[in-house]
Computed example of a mutant assay.
Amino acid sequence: MNSQLENQARDDAFARRIRPHMAMMRRQCVRLAGNAWDGEDLFQRAMLKCFKAWQKRVTRTFTKAYLYRIISNTWIDEHRKVRVTEHAQESFDEIAACSEGKKTSEQFISAMKIVLERLNAKQRLVYLMQAGWGLTAPEIAKRLGETEGNVRVIYHRAKRRVASDQPGADTLPDERRLARYINAFQSGDPDRLLALYREEAHRHHVRESGFGDSGFICRMAA
């Protein structure tokens, strides 16, 4: 209980410091990124860096110059890190066109591991359906019970995560789980992927009881 109260007090203190600068930071992020979606991703990463820097020195002053530098460095780092994994899309194209008897390639297995490691359950479902099978956003939205706009946002973010060096949203997949996804994808049956998604979504149901770093940043950004 004391720990939760301390975390809450810490989060509140950071919020008081950063809140007056958030609108300016968002504008700068959108300007650098060139669009609202990428700008929001950049804003989230910059906020997390500010939070971690503040944790190390709570007397830190957030000047405009300092925040601009955080945003610029975050943007530069992102572009330096990105390695577009073209083999992932090539592998999905290859498997989608395969006959049933063709052996699964090592390249495809590697691509599926990236998808399992880096994407959350919903991103994974949308990415495999759209990048792998070529389904349209309206088709996926109807199956998933999401709006078409939400599906486009999910797919956009999933593509960025697949193509980046960012830490994965998941642990290394075990062989059974990997095999289930490969089989479901190769079957071409959306209901099999949907069943896996529902199973994973249920297993990873919201577990945050306090703010925590990432949860707090999302609440601040809302």
Rank of each mutant, 00 (worst) to 15 (best):
N2E: 10
S3F: 05
Q4N: 15
L5F: 06
F14W: 07
A15K: 05
I18H: 02
M25F: 00
M25T: 00
R26G: 06
Q28A: 13
L32S: 10
L32Y: 12
A33H: 12
D38M: 07
E40L: 09
L42V: 13
F43V: 00
Q44R: 13
Q44W: 14
C50F: 00
K52R: 12
A53S: 12
Q55T: 14
Q55E: 15
Q55I: 15
R57L: 01
R60H: 13
R60A: 15
F62Q: 11
F62E: 02
T63K: 05
K64R: 09
A65H: 00
Y66K: 03
R69T: 08
I71D: 02
N73V: 06
D77L: 04
H79F: 09
R80W: 05
E86L: 11
E86P: 01
A88D: 03
Q89A: 11
Q89V: 12
F92E: 04
A96W: 09
S99C: 13
G101H: 14
K102F: 02
K102R: 11
Q107F: 03
A111Q: 02
M112H: 13
R118C: 04
N120H: 06
Q123H: 09
R124T: 02
L125M: 04
M129N: 02
M129I: 00
L135T: 01
E139I: 02
R143M: 08
R143Q: 15
L144W: 06
G145E: 12
E146Q: 12
E146N: 11
N150G: 04
V151K: 00
I154D: 08
Y155L: 14
R157G: 05
R157Q: 09
R161H: 02
R161F: 08
S164Y: 03
S164I: 02
Q166F: 08
P167G: 10
G168A: 05
D174F: 14
D174P: 08
R176P: 06
R177A: 01
A179W: 09
Y181M: 05
N183T: 09
N183P: 03
N183V: 10
F185M: 07
F185A: 04
S187C: 07
D189H: 05
L193M: 11
A195F: 14
L196V: 06
L196W: 11
Y197K: 08
Y197Q: 07
Y197E: 13
R198W: 13
R198H: 15
E200A: 13
A201H: 03
H205F: 15
V206S: 09
R207C: 03
S209V: 01
G210I: 06
G212M: 01
D213Q: 05
G215S: 10
F216D: 04
C218G: 05
C218D: 11
M220L: 15
A222N: 11
A222T: 10
